[in-house]
Computed example of a mutant assay.
Amino acid sequence: MTVPAELSYTADHEWIATDGDVSTVGITSHAAEALGDIVYISLPSVGDTITAGQSCGEIESTKSVSDLFAPADGDVVEINGAAEADPASINTDPFGKGWLFRMRITGSPDLLDAAAYTALTEGA
Rank of each mutant, 00 (worst) to 15 (best):
80 N>M: 00
74 G>H: 09
93 D>G: 07
101 F>R: 01
45 S>Q: 15
75 D>Y: 09
111 L>N: 04
60 E>V: 12
105 I>T: 08
65 V>C: 01
90 I>G: 09
54 Q>K: 15
93 D>I: 00
62 T>K: 15
72 A>R: 06
88 A>T: 11
79 I>R: 06
74 G>F: 07
78 E>C: 03
46 V>R: 06
112 L>Y: 03
81 G>F: 11
66 S>V: 02
60 E>R: 12
44 P>R: 01
83 A>F: 03
92 T>I: 08
113 D>T: 11
93 D>Q: 05
99 W>D: 07
46 V>T: 04
63 K>G: 04
65 V>N: 12
101 F>I: 00
92 T>G: 07
113 D>S: 15
102 R>F: 08
53 G>P: 00
105 I>V: 08
96 G>R: 02
80 N>H: 01
99 W>S: 04
53 G>D: 06
70 A>P: 03
98 G>L: 05
60 E>S: 13
83 A>V: 02
52 A>C: 07
77 V>E: 14
60 E>P: 12
85 A>H: 03
73 D>C: 10
47 G>R: 04
78 E>A: 14
97 K>Y: 00
65 V>Q: 14
54 Q>R: 14
69 F>A: 13
90 I>T: 09
61 S>N: 01
94 P>I: 02
72 A>M: 04
55 S>Q: 15
87 P>F: 07
51 T>I: 08
105 I>L: 05
97 K>H: 14
105 I>H: 00
112 L>W: 01
113 D>K: 07
47 G>A: 03
